[in-house]
Design a binder for these strands. Structure first.
Length: 490
RNA sequence: GGGUCGUUAGCUCAGGCGGUAGAGCAGUAGCCUUUUAAGCUAUUGGCCGCAGGUUCGACUCCUGCACGACCCA
């Protein structure tokens, strides 16, 4: 990479050599800062500049140089570290011999500074450098100081550069970290146990999706990257870990767009002795917890939409949503041929072999989902497309299941878990039939999971929440790539 | 998968009835010890995404490809 013919890089490598010639190690690692830059700023921003002169304010700090304003015999440098930025003043008559080192520095270099705090004419807290340490010479020029890095492709591919120059990106990922920490806190407060289950699966299950295939050399077998942790988490409930959750990656071999990345983060949790109604309230509580702790209030703006999280969220049955929001009639909904015709008109990938329920789900995606802005629980999904959910007592064609939609995105999916091993066996067989008909997203038959159910799964409610999409909502990013540090790029 | 648009200096962007390209920042040389996108003077820097075609001549027009963004599915 370095051999590239770039004059700016060449010049920086020359400076590197000149620094070595001065007897200085350009990658010296014996210096450790005592404070974050923001700590110094906060400590002194409200202290009078006269008073500053009378107190001892000698500090060791470090950071990357993000700007230099040079006056010949003095200069202002702006340093940046993980906490923020702080200005440093370098004067020739103070630094003496070390001023020669200063003259070899560039924007992008990482330096350590020892010096005293003072305030400039404009009252900016600044460190007057008495000692300068070069910690890392940077030989690649950073993007322009004013516009930063705009090229989306470069930003995703070279996220490290994006993070150096674009503060809003840093904020998004700080916030992502905080959101996940809050979720974890909320779950643990509610007596859930955090667990980790396998990423490498021998069978595909727990969701409707095409898997990634990989190979295990030791056993010479193909394996699948998991599409969901569901079946393992429920095995743990069988094992008596009555409340479990996992925040981790799932992999689905599907298209990529603003809402889909092939690997994405989900939280799944299972709670014994509860049913799906509990999950609706629990999910609302989780949102409350997040919004409160992030100081977002009840209404947020997302991509130009106003979203109202006031409780209770709207609740509507799947079929009612098709009627009231999708504007379909009972006659159409109950007639598979008419549904198929309509789905084909909407250019959905369906054919005669597609089940009635799956066609309805496609119609829902096309006609209802685009209209769901405020948080909405859609409940009672058809049993054929809910192979792991318990049937509804009143109407066994439907299940005790819901999905939560916000801003036209599916955010969560939960249900009363099917714990009848005989029923589960039949559903698996139905899935196999769908698979044989060509549905590559249908699940496989998981014999051991049936055995686990035969030992007895307590009545359990379970839910998955898409963390990336949740972060999108709470950080006002309309592309999933903007909430994933290293999104998949071709 | 389909459509639209984009790809020009390290970065951010202009430009062109077809005649080998410009600015700001960055860099370099100089002046400047309280700047805030510091200022002033001078100046270096380009396979105009890749490949082919049309043409006396292509960075510009045409075709294909790659990568990306957005829209649709």
């Amino acid at each position: 990479m370095i051999e590239e013919e770039n004059k700016l890089i060449k010049r920086r490598i020359e400076k590197l050599e000149e620094i070595k010639a001065l007897g200085i190690d350009p990658y010296y690692n014996g210096f450790s800062p005592e404070y974050f830059l923001n700590d110094i700023l906060n400590k002194y921003k409200d202290i009078d500049s006269e008073k500053l002169k009378s107190i001892n304010t000698n500090f060791k700090i470090a950071g990357r140089i993000i700007s230099i304003r040079d006056f010949g015999k003095a200069a202002f440098l702006k340093l940046k570290d993980v906490s923020g930025t702080l200005q440093v003043y370098c004067q020739k008559n103070v630094l003496g011999e070390q001023y020669a080192l200063y003259k070899k520095l560039d924007v992008g270099d990482i330096i350590g500074i020892e010096g005293n705090v003072f305030k400039t004419k404009t009252q900016e807290v600044t460190i007057n450098a008495t000692k300068l340490h070069l910690l890392t010479k940077s030989i690649r020029p950073l993007p322009e100081k004013f516009h930063g890095l705009q090229d989306k492709e470069l930003r995703y591919r070279q996220r490290y550069v994006d993070l150096i120059v674009n503060d809003d990106v840093r904020e998004t990922f700080f916030k992502r970290s905080k959101i996940i920490a809050l979720i974890r806190e909320f779950m643990i407060n509610n007596k859930f146990l955090e667990v980790e289950t396998p990423m490498l699966h021998k069978l595909v299950g727990g969701a409707a999706a095409k898997p990634f295939v990989t190979h295990l050399n030791a056993l010479d077998i193909d394996m699948y990257l998991r599409i969901a942790p569901e079946l393992y988490l429920k095995r743990l409930v069988v094992g008596g870990l009555e409340r479990v959750f996992e925040i981790n990656r799932n992999f689905r071999n599907e298209g990529m767009d603003l809402k889909h990345n092939p690997e994405f983060t989900m939280m799944e949790f299972y709670c014994a002795y509860k049913e799906y109604n509990f999950l609706l309230d629990f999910t609302e509580e989780l949102f409350d917890y997040l919004l409160n702790n992030l100081d977002l209030g009840k209404k947020i703006t997302y991509g130009g939409l106003e979203i109202d999280f006031s409780r209770p969220f709207k609740r509507i049955k799947f079929i009612d949503a098709l009627k009231e929001i999708g504007e379909l009639t009972d006659d159409i909904i109950s007639d598979k041929d008419q549904c198929l015709k309509l789905a084909l008109q909407l250019e959905k990938k369906v054919d005669e072999n597609t089940s009635h329920a799956k066609i309805l789900a496609e119609l829902f995606d096309a006609l209802v989902e685009p209209k769901l802005i405020n948080p909405t629980f859609v409940t009672h999904y058809p049993v054929e497309i809910s192979p792991l959910a318990k049937k509804n007592k009143q109407d066994p064609l439907f299940t005790d299941r819901f999905e939560l939609f916000i801003a036209n995105m599916e955010i969560a999916n939960g249900f009363s878990e099917l714990n009848d091993p005989f029923d589960q066996k039949e559903r698996f067989i139905k899935q196999l039939e769908e698979r044989n008909k060509g549905d590559e997203e249908a699940s496989m038959y998981d014999e051991d999971y049936i055995v686990a159910l035969e030992y007895g799964l307590a009545p359990t409610a379970g839910e998955g929440i898409g963390i990336d999409r949740l972060v999108m909502l709470l950080t006002n990013n309309t592309s999933i790539r903007d909430v994933i540090l290293f999104p998949l790029m071709k």
